[in-house]
Design a protein around this nucleic acid. Structure first.
Length: 547
RNA sequence: GCUCCGGUGGUGUAGCCAGGCCAAGCAUUAGGGACUCUCAAUCCCCCGACUCGGGUCCAAAUCCCGGCCGGAGCACCA
């Protein structure tokens, strides 16, 4: 133990400018030998003795001791860290989890967090991932969403085990409601929304709250049969009328909405609220764990009353924090209006933050998984980083992405080469055996060159046309040179004279027009256009992915 | 206004429940270098942080008290 103390003091001093610190050394020693805690006085005394001794040494003496007695201090260890989601508590063999969107439109990048976190755990533990479409507000449904949402999930690599559509379960919700009304947990009100809200604020119960259940049952039957109009009656779940949070005091469980439903038409007009249908479904579908955003934190508290009244086992709940996604259009209403007005071409317009748009730009679906696993499920509010996201995407795609040449703002330049030239360029610099591109350039030919780069080259300056030849600037021109330059010179891409036109659309709305080398004309999918960036090619259009 | 959740390098996070192995780890951006016929990829280097004050303790990013800052909910939307 004395030897270990001495070693740690010397190590600490060596790594911190020759001065050891008692606190740091004691911490290290206790981690090595926790029993030493029992006699702190002695330990402190011993350490202080060695610290004083070592701190009085000169740098030479300290280094001498390290080199002769403790050379392993010099070995630097790099710590590695694996990025995984933490284990879930309360797992009993397998899990049942869910993804529960409202069908107002397709998924966007924010939704992908919930989808992937839930999917990751089902993949880890086994069990079920339930896609539950929560379409109990007929006024806010896009019929196309019923197919767009499963498509988006499939693209993300999320494996849905079972799909449930809430509008197909109304009779079941009604029978659950009747049971809970007759058991005294729910009641029917005839006050309007404002009156009910005001009473709650004052902690005053509605007069029907304690009526005989048979009275409330009768009123519920009248609601279902269409006796009331919108706003004239609603079903309420009893909670605690004196709860410190006013929104938790007796919440609405069913309301009347006579809008036609895209799937059920006008068959129903009494719809459950989210807090009722979610509670009932979570129980009967056997949910074990629920992961969702922090905006649902209060809803979790409300829903627990349903579980408590029915003696149902409560799932484990996790809420992740609010995340701001900068420079990204996500709001469904804004997008819909834009599509209608012609501003956006559709849900996959690359200026949007929908998954369809990000897919069109060429993002790899694995990037989403990697980003959200790395972010985890902590409750902090955060800002999404496109920089980190793009870096992850590059890491995933680069090795398999072929290189081609694109010339933005092209100008034809005459090289004045006396002899024909031949270019030879690899499809991938790290994989030379994966192929190459070659072009023959006849004598006295012209090639396309980026117009805005010419002015950046000085008179007499020598450059390389990448994989083709050396050229020198004379006047306003670039002329072929057969003199190999010394040292490094600028390397700039070009394209042959028979290259075709292409437009490259950027997510900020800018469009670059230029020439794409002929061997890329039939290429589809993500490529790297050298010195320009990664682009998803689609005929005469390309969609800019990232640099 | 009421209720709740947070705050760790520019950004995103690990660590916090169970004080010591953290004079804080990892990633990414910025900056520098190597390699290099790409403004790419890869490798190396560098820079930079526990919201503030107090308490407890040999020892606090971690526990306790108070302030400050940020966010969410308060719909008969989800």
């Amino acid at each position: 133990m004395q030897q270990e103390i001495r070693k740690q003091v010397i190590k600490n001093a060596y790594m911190h400018g020759g001065k050891a610190d008692i606190s740091s050394v004691v911490g290290k020693l206790i981690s090595i030998n926790p029993d030493a805690k029992k006699d702190m006085k002695t330990l402190m005394g011993t350490i202080r003795k060695y610290v004083d001794e070592v701190n009085a040494m000169g740098a030479d003496q300290l280094e001498e001791i390290v080199n002769t007695e403790y050379p392993d201090i010099l070995i630097k260890e790099k710590k590695e860290e694996r990025h995984e989601l933490p284990d879930l508590p309360g797992v009993n063999g397998s899990v049942v989890m869910r993804m529960a969107p409202s069908p107002s439109g397709p998924l966007h990048i924010g939704h992908s967090r919930m989808a992937i976190l839930n999917d990751e755990y089902v993949k880890r533990y086994g069990g079920k991932l339930i896609l539950r479409i929560e379409d109990t507000n007929p006024g806010n449904i896009d019929p196309d969403a019923y197919t767009m949402i499963p498509e988006d999930l499939k693209w993300l690599g999320v494996d849905v085990t079972e799909t449930v559509i809430q509008s197909s379960r109304m009779e079941f919700y009604y029978s659950e409601a009747k049971r809970m009304i007759s058991e005294g947990y729910m009641y029917v009100i005839e006050e309007n929304q404002q009156e009910f809200h005001d009473l709650k604020l004052k902690k005053v119960p509605v007069k029907e709250r304690d009526a005989d259940p048979s009275v409330n049952l009768e009123k519920f039957d009248k609601m279902i049969s269409g006796h009331y109009s919108e706003g004239e009656a609603a079903v309420v779940m009893k909670t605690d009328i004196n709860h410190p949070n006013p929104s938790i005091r007796d919440w609405i469980a069913f309301r009347i909405n006579t809008t036609e439903h895209p799937l059920t038409g006008s068959k129903y007009s009494v719809y459950p609220t989210m807090n009722f249908s979610v509670s009932v479904d979570d129980h009967y579908l056997g949910l074990t764990h629920v992961i969702r955003g922090i905006d649902h934190l209060v809803n979790t508290e409300k829903q627990k009353y349903v579980f408590m009244y029915n003696n149902w086992k409560i799932p484990e709940y996790f809420h992740y924090g609010f995340i701001t996604i900068p420079d990204t259009i996500l709001k469904t209403t804004i997008i819909k209006e834009g599509i209608k007005s012609g501003k956006y071409s559709g849900w996959d317009d690359i200026r949007l933050g929908t998954l369809k748009a990000l897919k069109k730009r060429g993002y790899n679906p694995e990037t989403f998984r990697k980003y959200w696993v790395r972010s985890g499920m902590n409750k902090s509010n955060a800002t999404f980083s496109w920089e980190i996201f793009d870096s992850m995407d590059r890491e995933i795609i680069d090795y398999n992405t072929e290189r081609y040449s694109f010339v933005p703002h092209p100008e034809l330049i005459s090289l004045q080469n006396a002899e024909p030239l031949k270019s030879h360029a690899l499809l991938h610099p790290q994989r030379p055996d994966s192929g190459f591109r070659e072009y023959s350039i006849p004598a006295q030919a012209s090639v396309y060159f980026p117009g805005d780069e010419i002015d950046k080259i000085n008179e007499g300056e020598v450059i390389r046309l990448k994989d083709l030849c050396v050229a020198v600037k004379k006047g306003n021109k670039l002329v072929y040179s057969n003199i190999e330059p010394e040292g490094r010179v600028k390397i700039i891409q070009w394209a042959p004279e028979n290259s075709g036109d292409i437009q490259i659309f950027h997510p900020d709305g800018n469009i670059d027009k230029g020439k794409l080398e002929p061997l890329a004309t039939e290429k589809r999918g993500v490529v790297q256009l050298e010195r320009y960036g990664y682009v998803n090619l689609d005929g005469k259009n390309g969609y800019f992915l990232h640099k």
